[in-house]
């Protein structure tokens, strides 16, 4: 464990908690893409099946359980409890255009052709594009609530910190995972546009509205 991975995990946890609290306290999921949240629940489900097969550390197990629990709770709030506030008309990204290519790629490019490894690879690839429905929704509505931008900031920051963690681990441990790194770079690049708007607008107290 290194400081970059730890702050990355805490940033990820902060994003997940911010979103869940925002929806729960405001009793509304307006502006939130339910499709992205379903994709994240799928990412965690396919990645953390090893909860059933191996124990790595209390930290590892605890965080995985929290991530899975919060992501399913968020999906539940959006599609069941607070369904009336779900803005389906703007959440129209065709997720099948993500899942099918990602699923195919996971079969073609992986470290080992075993079920757990294929699912892990699918999860890594899917996570890199899972935010697209949310970013697409913001571009359609033309704006985002400030709390939603904080959620996106921490979510984008987490994988950027993981990139530094992988540089650190390559340098000090000779460890690297090309699949995770390439997907992580793609994932972080997708946030660059948002990061620019977040820094130039939200951090100056303005509302995030598009076109910029």
């Amino acid at each position: 464990m290194n400081i970059f991975r730890l702050t990355g995990d805490l940033s990820h946890l902060a994003a997940i908690i911010i979103l869940l609290l925002k929806i729960w306290k405001s009793r509304s999921c307006a502006g939130i893409s339910g499709k992205s949240q379903v994709l994240f629940a799928l990412v965690f489900t396919t990645r953390y099946l090893d909860l059933l097969t191996s124990f790595i550390s209390l930290y590892n197990t605890t965080m995985k359980v929290i991530y899975i629990g919060c992501s399913y709770a968020t999906v539940y709030l959006i599609y069941m409890k607070l369904k009336a506030t779900y803005d389906g008309n703007h959440d129209t990204f065709r997720v099948e255009f993500l899942i099918v290519p990602v699923g195919g790629l996971a079969f073609l490019v992986n470290h080992d052709f075993s079920p757990l490894e294929i699912l892990w690879t699918f999860s890594i690839y899917l996570e890199s594009v899972a935010i697209l429905p949310q970013l697409f929704m913001i571009s359609k509505t033309g704006e985002a609530e400030t709390i939603t931008t904080h959620y996106l900031f921490f979510l984008g920051l987490y994988r950027a910190l993981y990139l530094i963690n992988w540089i650190w681990r390559f340098y000090f441990e000779g460890f690297f995972d090309m699949i995770a790194i390439v997907a992580g770079v793609v994932q972080t690049i997708l946030y660059c546009d948002f990061f620019y708007l977040y820094v130039t607008k939200v951090l100056k107290g303005k509302k995030l509205s598009l076109p910029a």
């Binding site: 090893d50 790595i56 995985k64 993981y162 963690n165 000779g174 460890f175 995972d177 090309m178």
Partner: peptide
């Protein structure tokens, strides 16, 4: 090592 055998990252 090409990849850590143990998946110790989240």
């Amino acid at each position: 090592a090409f990849r850590q055998m143990e998946k110790d990252e989240l």
